[in-house]
Structure formats: structure tokens, C-alpha cells
């Protein structure tokens, strides 16, 4: 047998590529990733994907059950509510509000929080101390309470609810990223890099950032989960999305009085939230394991 090792060059992959190749071998996590892609596509193109308008009322078809139950119709796959509006369409638009809002919050909070956390960890003295105490104070306010405070000032609306949740999740994220960076700063290779005379930005970009991937996935996952739960909670309490908007939590709240007539209307939005969170958690857990294996 001809073995020609001369052409079989060992490719040294970049760390991110290596992590990706490990991640690809975890089938459940890859499935979760594609489901997330589908969910994001649904939330982007909800208006074109749905069979009916979420606000279209149909007096002939009120309170239909899902189609697999007796009396259901294939026209309305998940049934209709008390005004004959299609549950599936409302659910898709709900995912648009809830998932889209959570993604926006995660994106902005992670960028702002990471820069503040890094700034606090890399500076010493009065500035860091002031931030420390301010964060301690802000962390003591439960997120629901701070959301309530902000909404009292700005009035209840979907955008204000997103703003309030972002502001209430920001301290937690800053604290978590600060702790992760702080731990990294004590390592020997960072000190070596500092002795080489690396500036703060270079230190962060090449010394710290590649090494805090694992805690970052964990806190990002946590941030996203909390964002979804809080958007839905505020919507449920009536402080979030207002009536024509079909946010998942407010869907549950609006259908509360129908819970004995048609429990589906309350069950489906809750299940949707549940599935979104679980899928994201499975994906993040797979990613985290891939990062850990890649680092070892």
C-alpha cells in the first residue's frame, strides 16, 4: 500500500475553527442551532409566513380547538380564539415580539456590558471603586422592580419594556463579565503580555477575549433566558406590549378568562416560550462543551 505522507500536511486550524469542528460533532446541539435559525427566520418574516393575519376576525369560527381534536379545522392548525383569530398566526407574531426583543436586548446589553466590564476590570482605583459600589446598589434592585420603576416614568409600551429590561439586566451582565475578566487577569500569560508592554486594548483583544469564551457563552445564555422570561412576564402583567401587539406573555394574559373554555389558548404561548428557552439552552450548552474541549 502506498503511503505518501508528503502530501498529507497537518493543517493547524484556528481555535475558532477547531471549536466549530468539535461543535459540529454534537448532533443535538447542531439540531438546536438549526431550530434557532428557523425561529429567527420565523420572527423576521412572520408577516409573510402566517396563513392569516393575526388580527383577522372570523365570527363563524370562534374558539376552534387545534385540528387534531374533534371539531378542529385544518384551516386553523392550532385553533382560534374568542374572536376567531388564528392562534398559529398570533403565535408567530408573538415569537417575533418575544424572541426578536430578547435578541435585541442580548445584542446591545452584551456589547455595552462587556465594554463597561472590561473597562472596570482593566482600570484600578477610584473609577473602578465607584463602579463597584454603583453596581452593588443596582444589583440589589430586583429586575422586575426596576422594570416597574422605569415603566412608571415612561408609561407602558413595548419599546419602554425592552428598555427597562435591558437596563435592569445590564448590571448583572457587567458584574458577570467583570468577574470573568478579573479571573483571567491573574493568569501568568496575561502578566507576560503586560510585561511585553501591551496596551490595554491589545491586552483585551489578544490576551483576554480568546480565553473568556466559556464564561461568556454561559452569561450570554443566562442573559438571553432572563430577557425572554422578563419580556413575557412584563407582557403578562400588562406593562409590556399593548393590546394589538401579540407578545407571548400578553397573549397568555388576554386569554386568561378563556382558560376553562379553551385551555389551548393559554397552553400554546407558554409552550412556545418554553421551547425557545430550552432550544437556546441546549445550543449554548453544546457550544460551551465544544469550547471547553477545544481549550483542553
Amino acid at each position: 500500500m502506498l503511503i505518501n505522507n508528503g502530501f498529507n500536511e497537518d493543517k493547524i486550524q484556528s481555535p475558532l475553527r477547531y471549536i466549530w469542528s468539535i461543535f459540529k460533532s454534537k448532533s443535538i446541539a447542531v439540531v438546536a442551532m438549526w431550530v434557532i435559525v428557523c425561529l429567527i427566520l420565523i420572527s423576521l418574516f412572520a408577516s409573510w409566513l402566517v396563513p392569516h393575519s393575526p388580527l383577522l376576525q372570523d365570527p363563524d369560527k370562534m374558539l376552534l380547538p387545534p385540528y387534531w381534536v374533534d371539531g378542529g379545522s385544518i384551516d386553523h392548525v392550532l385553533g382560534t380564539d374568542d374572536l376567531g383569530r388564528d392562534t398559529l398566526s398570533r403565535l408567530f407574531h408573538g415569537i417575533q415580539y418575544t424572541l426578536g426583543g430578547a435578541l435585541l436586548i442580548t445584542f446591545f446589553v452584551s456589547i455595552i456590558g462587556m465594554s463597561i466590564g472590561a473597562g472596570a476590570a482593566l482600570t484600578k482605583g477610584v473609577k473602578a471603586s465607584i463602579l463597584h459600589h454603583l453596581l452593588d446598589a443596582l444589583l440589589a434592585i430586583p429586575s422586575l422592580l426596576s422594570a416597574l420603576i422605569l415603566i412608571t416614568f415612561f408609561g407602558p409600551s413595548y419599546v419602554n419594556c425592552l428598555l427597562a429590561i435591558a437596563l435592569s439586566l445590564l448590571p448583572q451582565f457587567i458584574r458577570a463579565s467583570y468577574l470573568a475578566i478579573e479571573q483571567e487577569l491573574n493568569k501568568q500569560y496575561i502578566i507576560a503580555l503586560q510585561l511585553d508592554g501591551a496596551a490595554k486594548t491589545r491586552l483585551f483583544r489578544y490576551g483576554i477575549l480568546p480565553n473568556i469564551l466559556e464564561p461568556t457563552t454561559t452569561i450570554l445564555n443566562r442573559l438571553f433566558t432572563m430577557a425572554i422570561i422578563e419580556i413575557a412576564t412584563l407582557g403578562f402583567l400588562g406593562f409590556g406590549a399593548q393590546l394589538p401587539q401579540t407578545e407571548l406573555g400578553s397573549l397568555i394574559a388576554n386569554n386568561m378568562e378563556l382558560i376553562y373554555l379553551s385551555p389551548w389558548l393559554v397552553a400554546f404561548p407558554g409552550l412556545a416560550i418554553f421551547i425557545i428557552i430550552i432550544i437556546v439552552n441546549v445550543f449554548a450548552e453544546g457550544l460551551r462543551h465544544a469550547v471547553i474541549e477545544g481549550e483542553e
Binding site: I229, A232, T233, G249, I252, G270, I273, F274, I277
Partner: peptide, 8 residues
């Protein structure tokens, strides 16, 4: 347990 929304 983490994924179930509490109010639901």
C-alpha cells in the same frame, strides 16, 4: 425547570 416561565 429553568425554561418554564414562572407565571405560566
Amino acid at each position: 425547570g429553568l425554561a418554564l416561565p414562572v407565571f405560566w
